[in-house]
C-alpha cells in the first residue's frame, strides 16, 4: 500500500513539477502571473492528440510536436496579451487580468474546435505493459512519464545554469533594466522564456493526457489551480522550489486520499496553498524579498 502510493506520488509529482516549472519561470523572469498557463497545457495535450490521430505519428514525435506547438502558442500569447502592457509599463494586476482573458479565449476556442467531450489517445498508440512486483503495480506509461519529465526538468536546470541564454534569463529575472544596459537582448530573452515555459506546459499536457487517458478543453483548470499551490509552496519564481513542491503536493494528495478521505482531494491543494500563505508566504525554498517603491 505504502509503496504503491509512493509510486503514484512520484509520477504524478513529476507532471505537477513540470507544469509548475514553466509557470514559475515566467513569474521569475517577468513578474507576471500567467493564468493562461493551464490553457496552454490543454492545447499541448490536443496538439499531441492531433499528431497521433490525424498524422499517425508515434508518441515521441507527437510529444515534440506538442512542445513546439505550445511553445509557439506561448510566444503568440506574449505578443497579444502581455507585450502591449509591458510597453506601457502597466501594473502587475493588468497582466493577470489579460492572462485570464487569454485563458478564456483559448478554452472556448478548444471547446468550439474539439467539442466539450473527453477525447483520449488511441489505445494502439501507447505501450500498455504493466509491471507488477510484489504489491506494487506500475504501468509503462507511468514510468515513461516520470523519466521523460525528470529528463526535461534536468535539461531546463542545465539550460538555466550553463547556457548563455539561460544565464541571460537569470540576469533579466534579476533586473530587466540592468540586463539591457549590459547588452542583453531582453526582448529575445522574454520570447525564449515564453517558448520554454509553454513548451514544458505542452509536454506536461501530453503526459497527463496519456496517464489519465482523458483530454478535454477543461483539463487545464484543475491543474492551473494546483500549479498555483505548487508555485506558492516552492516560492514564487523559484525553479528548484517548484520541482520540490510539485512532488510534495502530489505526495500530500496521494497519501491524503489513501489514508484520510477522497472527498476533499481537490481541496488539499488549496489547503496547502492557504497554509503556506499564512505561515511562510515566501515558500519552502524562498527567501523574503523586500520590494522598494
Amino acid at each position: 500500500m505504502f509503496l504503491q502510493q509512493l509510486v503514484n506520488a512520484l509520477w504524478l509529482g513529476s507532471v505537477y513539477a513540470l507544469f509548475a516549472l514553466g509557470y514559475t519561470l515566467v513569474f521569475g523572469v517577468l513578474d507576471i502571473l500567467n493564468l493562461a498557463h493551464g490553457a496552454v497545457f490543454m492545447w499541448g495535450a490536443f496538439f499531441g492528440l492531433m499528431a497521433v490521430t490525424r498524422l499517425d505519428m508515434p508518441i515521441w514525435a507527437a510529444l515534440l510536436v506538442a512542445m513546439l506547438g505550445s511553445g509557439v502558442l506561448g510566444i503568440v500569447l506574449d505578443r497579444v496579451a502581455f507585450r502591449p502592457l509591458r510597453k506601457r509599463n502597466a501594473p502587475q494586476l493588468a497582466a493577470i487580468i489579460s492572462s485570464i482573458g487569454a485563458s478564456t479565449i483559448l478554452v472556448s476556442l478548444a471547446q468550439g474546435a474539439f467539442g466539450a467531450q473527453v477525447s483520449r489517445f488511441p489505445l494502439d498508440a501507447l505501450p500498455s505493459q504493466v509491471f507488477i512486483t510484489g504489491p506494487v503495480r506500475v504501468t509503462l506509461i507511468q514510468i515513461i512519464v516520470f523519466v521523460a519529465s525528470v529528463v526535461l526538468m534536468i535539461a531546463l536546470l542545465l539550460f538555466m545554469r550553463r547556457s548563455r541564454s539561460g544565464k541571460a534569463m537569470r540576469a533579466v529575472a534579476y533586473s530587466g533594466r540592468i540586463s539591457a544596459l549590459l547588452g542583453i537582448n531582453v526582448d529575445r530573452i522574454i520570447v525564449t522564456t515564453f517558448f520554454v515555459s509553454s513548451a514544458l506546459a505542452g509536454a506536461s499536457g501530453v503526459f497527463l493526457g496519456l496517464a489519465f487517458s482523458a483530454i478535454s478543453p477543461f483539463m487545464g483548470a484543475p491543474i492551473e489551480l494546483k500549479g498555483l499551490a505548487v508555485i506558492i509552496l516552492g516560492g514564487l519564481g523559484n525553479v528548484p522550489g517548484a520541482i520540490l513542491a510539485g512532488f510534495l503536493l502530489a505526495a500530500t494528495e496521494v497519501f491524503g486520499v489513501a489514508y484520510v478521505s477522497s472527498d476533499f482531494r481537490d481541496a488539499i491543494a488549496f489547503t496547502v496553498l492557504i497554509l503556506v500563505l499564512l505561515f511562510r508566504p515566501s515558500g519552502i525554498l524562498g527567501t523574503a524579498v523586500e520590494r522598494r517603491a
Binding site: 482573458g101 487569454a102 485563458s103 478564456t104 479565449i105 472556448s108 468550439g112
Partner: peptide
C-alpha cells in the same frame, strides 16, 4: 464565452 476573454484583453 470567447466574448468575455476578448473584452477583457
Amino acid at each position: 464565452p470567447i466574448v468575455n476573454g476578448v473584452v477583457l484583453i
